[in-house]
Design a protein around this nucleic acid. Structure first.
Lengths: 226, 226
DNA sequence: ACGGCGATGTCACCGGTTTGTCACAAACCC
DNA sequence: GGGTTTGTGACAAACCGGTGACATCGCCGT
């Protein structure tokens, strides 16, 4: 239930300081010393937030930020920048690239923790994306409405929920078991193959928009944006 | 359909940053570099919201805020303040003057966008209430009156409240549990199927206007405008 | 106090829709 | 080519919402 945070910094001392304080605050902490490691861990561990030093060897922090944002699997993970000596421009560029906040070094650990909590809080509020749009496909959760090029598509309750869960977790593959847990809620009384049937019905009704629904053989299903 | 937002700041860089992010978020953006221009554009373009820097040359932000509030044409436009270095006092004064929210510089553009959306949402929420009209159907909340083509429809207290809650949340599906919570208030002593019965009675009495009441199978009920 | 009345909550039933399952065909991977 | 995984069509059971009937309750006037 603890939230994972990935700390990326090449100075071991700095990592330790941050790590200690984050654990103190009840987070689970991973760390990476360079860009390559950071990207790998971000993709595999899918942390709730990434603390990223701007000054890194080889690839610099901004570049990592860009790469994280480009990969759909990590694009939505909030990033808090750590800058050693921040000219105003750096800040702005960092934020434009999609960092969610920044702290200048030397920093007070307390401030960092507060900012991290703040960003996570914001994320939770924003995560309940009300209306999702992918090209011509519109998914409106509160209205329980799906449309393709403005034309409504009639879905049953389960079909809608299945689509919604997949779209909300877009990019990431969902196993049949996961889907059973998240869509059907009371689990495992149901055959996993039932998911297949519902996927078929969903694809039938979506028509051309079914291109967003991707089968990953041996694993499960996935919603793709493009 | 896009909402217009007026950004007032004398620093071109700041304007650009805000403008970029707001456009990204789907808003139409106007800008003004000083108070005079801001007042003029506010009056002519009537934006949905104004982002206002407190520190402006010549007239300062607070003064502009006051002037905007004094003019009936602009008095009800929400204002989000931008303060470079906010002593607590400044904030309070800003809010006392009728600013609807504030963000301190340097700020995360994401946060600004979120706050703006939030303020707009609040505005929309406040705008409803009082008297609702949908085609020939009139719902007068304070007077507890409903009419169809000018002819009054007699509703019981529960029926009225049910209709009102649905109409206020028009478009969005309400589950039976939600309705029980919001209409019956102290909940769960009551069977959720009771909602159905009241819906039936409501539909009976509304006659042709019942077309606004939509059933979403497996989920709940929804008020539709058209 | 009493009886009547409207309002409200509950129930059982019905018809239509949704949904889970199965058997089989097709696709895919080694 | 064989074994595994996924897509498909059909079907019966379960579910869900609409409906009419009924019990209860509180209010009111007599």
């Amino acid at each position: 239930m603890k939230e994972k945070i990935l700390v990326v910094d090449d100075e071991a001392e700095a990592v330790e300081l941050v790590e200690f304080n984050l654990r103190q605050a009840g987070f689970e902490v991973l760390s990476a010393a360079d860009g390559a490691e950071a990207l790998k861990k971000a993709r595999t561990a899918l942390p709730s937030l990434i603390v990223l030093d701007l000054m890194l060897p080889e690839i610099d922090g901004l570049e990592i930020c860009r790469m994280l944002r480009r990969d759909p699997a990590t694009a939505r993970i909030p990033i808090v920048m750590l800058t050693a000596k921040a000219a105003e421009m750096d800040r702005i560029i960092g934020l434009e690239l999609g960092a969610d906040d920044y702290v200048t070094k030397p920093f007070s650990p307390r401030e960092l923790v507060l900012r991290i909590k703040n960003v996570l809080q914001r994320g939770r509020a924003a995560a309940e994306a009300e209306v999702l749009k992918f090209g011509d496909l519109l998914i409106d959760a509160p209205r329980h409405l799906v449309s393709w090029r403005g034309k409504a598509i009639e879905l049953t309750a389960t079909e809608f929920k299945l689509l919604l869960v997949l779209a909300q977790r877009r990019g990431r593959v969902q196993s049949r078991d996961q889907l059973l847990r998240d869509v059907w809620e009371y689990n495992s009384l149901i055959d996993t193959r039932t998911v297949d049937t519902h996927m078929r019905r969903l694809r039938d009704k979506l028509g051309p928009a079914a291109k967003h629904l991707d089968t990953v053989r041996g694993v499960g299903y996935r919603f793709i944006e493009a």
